[in-house]
Simulated assay, not measured.
Amino acid sequence: MTGGAAAVRSGIRFDRVSVAYGGNVVLDGLDLTVEPGEVMALLGPSGSGKTTALRAVAGFVRPASGRVYIGDRDVTALPPHKRGIGMVVQSYALFPHLRVQDNVAFGLKAQKADRAEIPGRVAEALELVGMAAYARRYPRELSGGQQQRVAIARALAIRPGVLLLDEPLSALDAQLRSGMLAELARLHRELPDVSLLYVTHDQVEALTLADRIAVMDRARLQDCGTPQELYRRPRTEFTASFVGNANLLPVTVAEAPGTVDFAGHALAVPTGEVAAGVTATLCVRPHLVGLGDGPNALTGTIAEVQWRGSTHRLYVEVDGHRIKADLRELRETPALGDRATLHFAAQDAVLLPAGAGASRG
């Protein structure tokens, strides 16, 4: 951190970590490594296990089996205050009766930091998040975004090697959320030694901030990779539908190389080593679907049109299947019931064989 010692460089490792409540498994055999200095997003719906994983690192839940490591230390049995981590939660958890500077100093005092160092480290942390001018205010005198900055400053003041963020932006409106995402990205650039484990159900947050994304569902890790890998080449239907938006079309691999059958239509797509006759799912992102004649053309009836400002989203019924297309600058808005032809390039499609789902990290 500027003006003081840098955080200790450390990562996180989950070694077959499982958590259960009353026989109900809420985290099942998680194997995952967050490298030193990496931003890892845990992305998934409610109940997927992502917050439980974060709480296992924080020390708020004890695994039924498996081990949790921070750096080289096995912290599975350590209490939270001995783990040397910073944590930011969605409710901010600021003390309303304490001024900003005293909220930020709280963790340092709990760690029995040198009293002479505390004012400087508080000032350093507030400066880092752009809140130095608000040091003497109370939380009630701050906006939601400002309170979140204070919560982050409090977590950073102890100079953690690991920073845990649990849905930190969910209480903010869309404009503030966008600004805080930019701030978190800036903070990570200024604190490259700090590992961030970021829990969210918001794919935009994960895609914007993370170096890698771990996709969780039903207590298990479903996939892990860079945002680009998961978006452009998902390995499972769940990943394709949860990271970004996708058309998922049921197909059968045809005898002709590089060809699949979709509702009687022959489509040219990369099939790799998938054998003929195998049923699979074809993933095509809506923004890669064009209107009019072209490769892999499919004609159907317009079932719905949504204007989204910079784009129109068309829903076209093709032989009982609804295909989405995000189109820019339509001069004339198509009418419901009109016939429309959609197309997509072979290289923009990803074939997902049935049962695909091995994780990557």
Score class of each variant (00 low, 15 high):
Ala135Leu: 09
Leu176Arg: 08
Val199Ala: 07
Ala171Ser: 15
Val162His: 05
Gly161Ser: 03
Ala135Arg: 15
Gly161Ala: 04
Arg137Cys: 10
Glu167Ser: 06
Met180Val: 08
Leu181Lys: 15
Leu156Ser: 03
Arg115Tyr: 00
Gly120Lys: 06
Lys109Asn: 09
Asp166Pro: 09
Gly120Gln: 09
Ala123Ile: 00
Gln147Ala: 05
Leu184Cys: 03
Gln148Met: 08
Ile118Glu: 01
Gln175Tyr: 00
Ala153Val: 12
Gln175Val: 13
Arg186Thr: 07
Leu156Val: 07
Leu181Cys: 12
Ala132Glu: 13
Val162Arg: 10
Gly107Leu: 02
Gly179Asn: 15
Arg186Ser: 01
Ala182Tyr: 02
Gln148Lys: 11
Lys109Ile: 01
Pro160Gln: 03
Val129His: 02
Ala171Gly: 03
Leu181Trp: 00
Ala185Met: 05
Ser178Ile: 14
Ala132Asp: 11
Arg189Leu: 10
Ala157Leu: 10
Val122Pro: 05
Leu108Met: 08
Gly145Pro: 05
Arg177Phe: 10
Leu169Pro: 04
Ala171Cys: 05
Ile118Trp: 00
Arg115Leu: 11
Asp173Gln: 02
Ala125Cys: 08
Pro192Lys: 13
Val129Phe: 03
Ala132Leu: 13
Leu176Met: 14
Pro160Val: 07
Ala157Asn: 13
Tyr134Thr: 01
Ala113Gln: 10
Ser143Ala: 09
Ala171Ile: 04
Gln175Met: 02
Ala185Arg: 15
Met180Glu: 04
Arg186Trp: 08
Leu172Tyr: 03
Ser195Leu: 08
Arg177Asn: 13
Ala171His: 14
Leu184Asn: 06
Asp193Arg: 12
Tyr134Gln: 14
Leu187Tyr: 06
Ala125His: 06
Ile152Ala: 12
Thr200Ile: 12
Ala182Lys: 11
Val122Met: 03
Glu124His: 02
Gly107Arg: 06
Arg115Val: 15
Leu172Asn: 03
Gln175His: 08
Val129Ser: 02
Ser170Thr: 14
Ile118Gln: 00
His188Val: 13
Val199Lys: 07
Arg159His: 01
Ala132Pro: 00
Asp193Tyr: 03
Tyr198Thr: 09
Ala153Glu: 11
Asp166Gly: 11
Ala135Val: 08
Ile118Cys: 00
Lys112Tyr: 01
Arg136Asp: 15
Ala182Gln: 14
Ala151Cys: 12
Val129Cys: 00
Asp114Thr: 04
Gln111Phe: 05
Leu169Ile: 08
Leu156Asp: 04
Gly179Cys: 00
Gly130Cys: 04
Val162Phe: 06
Val150Asp: 04
Thr200Arg: 14
